[in-house]
Design a protein around this nucleic acid. Structure first.
Lengths: 209, 209
DNA sequence: TCGTTGTACTTGACACTGTCAAGTTGTACG
DNA sequence: CGTACAACTTGACAGTGTCAAGTACAACGA
């Protein structure tokens, strides 16, 4: 079969990947089948194996892509208009909502394994490093490295928990009548960043404007 | 076949459920197969369907059990020895680590559906109600209901994020040398509850204790 | 005592899945 | 011209979720 112009040599990998991401976005990672992916990409059921080895391989690549692009999102955070913490929360949540397919996979050690796939682990590390840099911008560079780690872990937990509960969890079902989900999300983000600023100030660290 | 004394009438449901939870705990929800569950429970491959309808049915029941027992864990929180927020964080994390099988399923809308299974939704509601009660104990009962919701959502995000990152996520891989995971976890919990107390105090709400 | 009804399963079948093994095709290079 | 390799395809197999149909047995009304 002659390949269509849009699927020239080397595109198959990307086609397969995009098909997989689309499925995960709409149906969840659970119901991703290699054969369905292949079908949507218009290739044989075994082609994806050529590029990704096995099912977990495709998840690992998606996870890696996700962490890289999360790191990029952190790097792009614009802190001129609002406190760094707030900007970070928003960036994290936006990432999760915009790249839901990636996000759903990134933290699923059972299916792709930060512990088993080295490239994924490296990408995850670089995202965490960006987060640590952000912490320094929140607290000032004089912070003790151990405290910086704790602070980063706390920020990550808060962002991650919110994002998870918003995109998959029961939170959207529970918003009280009279308020919208978006309102509630910004209320939580405002509360969180205010709280973080208080903590940074009380620690004697410079709250960055 | 005459049933063994340990598997009398009605036990099959529980046997199946426990087998499923054990598999999820050790292998993750992804690799739970109805047939393997049936095999471990010593019944035919179709017996689980009698009780749970389909694969998502078994997840829904596990999820429901999980939310009920999370609500119970909130109710049992002992706030005499430490601030309510800290006790809550510890309770949440302990729950996630002790009932990992349940926890992994509870927030997986794609496989069991708080939105699709009513009993699960009810159980999730009751857990969230307990959390709101806890918020009132942290902030005092005079808090505006909308603010209470926001506060609860923030606490939930923080707890949930931490628990998720600890049991499945990349956080344990990233602890700096010279500190243990447990040390880092309590540092994050201490930081978080301190921060929450600051926020409650600043809001003019009574910090309990 | 007999037929009916309902529960708690079991057996059988089907389409579908992940993955191993073995082709096939084209392209690059010596 | 040969051969090596990448980029696939085709075929097969065991295992999967689930529908459909059966079986065993207790409870109950006539």
């Amino acid at each position: 079969m002659v390949p269509a112009p849009s699927e020239q040599h080397g595109d198959v990998r990307r086609l397969v990947l995009d098909a997989a991401i689309a499925i995960i976005e709409s149906e969840g990672a659970e119901s991703l089948s290699m054969r369905e992916v292949a079908r949507r990409a218009g290739v044989s059921h075994q082609a994806p194996y050529h590029y990704f080895g096995d099912r977990s391989g495709i998840f690992a690549v998606i996870s890696e892509e996700g962490f890289s692009s999360l790191a990029q999102a952190f790097r792009n955070v614009d802190e001129t208009e609002m406190p760094a913490a707030k900007a970070g929360f928003i960036a994290y949540l936006n990432f999760a909502r915009k790249h839901t397919g990636h996000f759903r996979v990134m933290f699923r050690n059972d299916i792709c394994g930060v512990t088993t796939h080295d490239l994924t682990a490296v990408a995850a590390d670089s995202a965490f490093d960006e987060l640590r840099l952000m912490v320094e911008r929140i607290t000032g560079p004089s912070i003790d490295p151990k405290d910086a780690f704790t602070f980063a872990a706390m920020l990550w937990s808060l962002s991650h928990g919110l994002a998870t509960l918003v995109i998959d969890g029961p939170l959207p079902n529970k918003i009280p009548p009279g308020t919208s989900l978006e309102d509630q999300i910004s209320a939580v983000i405002d509360l969180s960043s205010h709280m973080v600023a208080l903590e940074a100030a009380e620690k004697g660290l410079l709250p960055r404007q």
